Amino acid sequence: MNIFGALFAGTVLVLNLLLPLTKTKNFNYWFERGLNSSSSSEQIDCYTEAINSWKDSIGVEKKSEAFYGRGFAYTSKNLFDEAIADYDIAISLNPKYAEAYAGRGNVYYRRGMSNKAVDDYTKAIELKPDFAGAYNNRGVAYDDAGLFDKAISDYTRAILLKPGYANAYHNRGITYYKKGEEEEAKIDFAKAKENGYIYLQNITEAELLLK
């Protein structure tokens, strides 16, 4: 009996079994896995693998999306420098990537850089005029800056673009309350609750109007 031959044959069999699995772990495999993961750490790992396995034939837009996805995951872990770096690359690869501008705007806002956040949200809106989320988030930045009328205008636009937008109703209610317009605030808080906004914790004085 040729033991070497038997071992070699067995090795070939194992390699043949593993080969299909190896072939699936390309850019698309890692990208989809990152997209469907609920773990920020796993998302970072998967998008990193996707970026490392990217090829010219896939196209720069998909590579841009991988950097965006990893930037989003970094943001979730409060790794803001890494997030901004990835959003910067995503934008450099695809200058018309509205979501990447909005994502970077979210990081700037969380770092207390409201002016830069507004600039990025504005760019996102220019690129994607029906981007309700960018209007809502720019409204939050305007509210923080005390620009209440601009904030209300943005929240209103967000609601027009996305009827039933609970967060926008809630945020507009907060701004109305800050302006002393309690009746308008009460209406918006009720609409927010009606559309699924849950008032569970950190109840503000404004939200007490619902009771």
Score class of each variant (00 low, 15 high):
Ile187Met: 13
Phe131Arg: 05
Tyr47Gln: 08
Thr22Met: 06
Tyr108Ile: 04
Phe67Trp: 06
Glu99Gln: 13
Ile84Met: 03
Tyr142Lys: 06
Tyr142Ser: 03
Ala145Met: 15
Pro20Trp: 09
Tyr97Ala: 00
Gly5Phe: 01
Tyr135Gln: 09
Gly5Asp: 00
Ser37Gly: 09
Tyr101Cys: 01
Lys179Gly: 06
Glu42Pro: 09
Asp120Thr: 07
Lys193Pro: 03
Glu99Lys: 14
Gly112Gln: 12
Ile58His: 03
Phe4His: 08
Glu49Lys: 15
Ala85Met: 06
Thr204Gln: 03
Gly10Val: 11
Asp45Gln: 14
Met113His: 14
Trp30Leu: 00
Phe67Lys: 02
Ile58Asp: 08
Ala50Val: 06
Lys186Val: 04
Thr48Tyr: 10
Leu147Arg: 12
Gly5Glu: 01
Gly105Ile: 01
Leu79Ile: 10
Thr156Trp: 00
Ala158Phe: 05
Tyr142Ala: 05
Lys191Ser: 15
Tyr142Gln: 05
Asp120Cys: 07
Ile174Val: 15
Met1Asn: 09
Glu99Leu: 14
Lys63Trp: 05
Phe80Trp: 06
Thr156Lys: 04
Ser41Gly: 09
Ala90Met: 07
Gly59Asn: 00
Arg110Ala: 14
Leu79Asp: 10
Glu194His: 05
Cys46Thr: 02
Glu49Cys: 13
Tyr109Phe: 15
Leu209Ala: 11
Val140Arg: 12
Thr175Pro: 00
Ala141Arg: 11
Gly139Ala: 02
Val140Pro: 08
Ala85Ile: 08
Glu194Lys: 07
Lys25Val: 10
Asp149Leu: 08
Ser153Lys: 13
Glu126His: 09
Asp88Cys: 04
Lys55Ala: 13
Gly180Val: 12
Glu99Pro: 01
Val60Met: 12
Gly69Asn: 03
Phe4Glu: 12
Glu99Trp: 10
Val140Gln: 10
Ile51Met: 12
Glu183Lys: 07
Gly133Arg: 03
Thr175Glu: 01
Asp45Pro: 00
Asp149Tyr: 09
Arg33Ala: 10
Lys25Glu: 13
Lys62Cys: 00
Leu147Ala: 09
Lys23Asp: 07
Ala132Glu: 05
Lys162Phe: 01
Gly133Trp: 06
Ile58Ser: 05
His170Leu: 00
Glu32Ala: 12
Lys186Pro: 04
Ala185Lys: 11
Arg157Asp: 04
Leu127Thr: 05
Asn167Cys: 04
Leu160Met: 11
Tyr108Gln: 09
Glu65Asn: 11
Asp144Leu: 14
Ile152Phe: 01
Asp45Leu: 15
Tyr199Asn: 04
Leu17Phe: 15
Glu126Ala: 12
